[in-house]
């Protein structure tokens, strides 16, 4: 699936992550800002990328602003963004 329009999921509240999903240029590019960047930055990037690829997305720009979200929250927010992108594409 291709992301055609920008969609957002999540919030900037503690324990959450805000995911902005935009049209990509052939690869998955992740811009991450996190309160736990040093400890978990690479793990957060991995969860985001895995979730996108599981849903058949190979091209997207992801702007992620993390406030200490658990992996399951990161997955949920990415999945929600993808679902919203699909709805936008169908509209």
């Amino acid at each position: 699936m291709e992301v055609k329009r920008t969609v957002v999921s999540g919030t900037l509240e503690s324990s959450d992550i805000m995911i902005t999903l935009e049209k990509g240029n052939g690869t998955i590019e992740i811009e991450l800002d996190s309160t736990v960047m040093k400890q978990f930055g690479s793990s957060i990037r991995q969860v985001i990328e895995e979730t996108l690829r599981e849903q058949g997305i190979d091209s997207a720009l992801v702007i992620a602003r993390d406030r200490g979200a658990l992996d399951c929250t990161i997955r949920a927010r990415v999945q929600a963004a993808i679902a919203k992108a699909q709805e936008e594409n169908a509209a």
Partner: peptide, 15 residues
Amino acid sequence: KTDARFLVQQALMHL
């Protein structure tokens, strides 16, 4: 609504 649905689903699956 979409955000909440995925969040609760993931919580049920992983917590």
